[in-house]
Design a protein around this nucleic acid. Structure first.
Lengths: 136, 136
DNA sequence: ATCTCTATTTACGTTAACGTCAACGTAAGC
DNA sequence: GCTTACGTTGACGTTAACGTAAATAGAGAT
């Protein structure tokens, strides 16, 4: 048996998997958002890097900047800190939650309006098809 | 009695109300996202402009680009078009809905993880406070 | 040995969404 | 008539998040 779960990923493979370019991954490393291992000059991405990347991209899809995404991801690594640290962390978490909840409200409102327009639109279409026969 | 509801807004007032700068509003006009009335060179924003702005900013909070936000807002103005137009519009609406629903899933996932971390964090804090007494 | 892939670094280019002057007009209040 | 407040049009500056091109290196296949 081999040494369990220490698979690494080449930069190209990871890029393909997540639908980003290699430039993106290098950029993320340059900015410190990812820290792939280096053998020589070549990068090797671990499972942890892969998870981090997934979370970063999820943050991006929510409209966060990379820095904000990274901050959230870092929150996940509770460093088992002191009492004060824990309280700071909890505060940050609450803040993030508030922000995300507001976003959820915005999202719901937008979906509502889309639904309304969709409804009107469907009605109008139905009227047209009823009145003027079944034009193809 | 006066002529009902034709109130307009000065650029500064509108900026203050929405927490943006006047530069932003001028930029939005320059890009065609807003079309305030002009008396001389001075801009006067109508209620419609105000609503549009609100929707644009909501789109931004969802992480959309201004162009995307504007596109969505434009969808709201169903132009009572032809059968073909209506179908195109319905398709676009469905597409937007899909995108927003994916975002909702991302949001939920993120909130879940935040919750989990919050939980752990709270537990850790509780343990600390139980074991080492009630340090201020 | 040469070709082909994938990788690397360096560095300049690009787009969106404004910020930040500068220089000026205008209406209100004193 | 002067100040103060708010408006205007350029026009250049800035930041984030990569794109793109050039020159180079190592590893495998033929």
């Amino acid at each position: 048996m081999s040494k369990a779960n220490d698979a690494t990923y080449a930069i190209g493979d990871l890029a393909d998997e997540f639908g980003v370019t290699t430039r993106t991954l290098r950029f993320y490393e340059e900015k410190g958002f990812l820290r792939p291992e280096r053998r020589g000059r070549v990068r090797y991405f671990s499972q942890a890097d892969r998870v981090r990347l997934r979370l970063l991209l999820r943050g991006k899809r929510l409209g966060l900047s990379l820095e904000e995404s990274a901050e959230i991801v870092d929150l996940y690594q509770t460093p088992e800190g002191s009492k004060r640290q824990l309280k700071v962390l909890l505060a940050k978490l609450a803040e993030r939650r508030e922000q995300l909840l507001e976003q959820a409200r915005d999202l719901e409102a937008t979906l509502d309006e889309l639904g309304r327009v969709e409804q009107q639109c469907g009605d109008a279409l139905a009227r047209l098809e009823t009145h003027s026969g079944t034009a193809r």
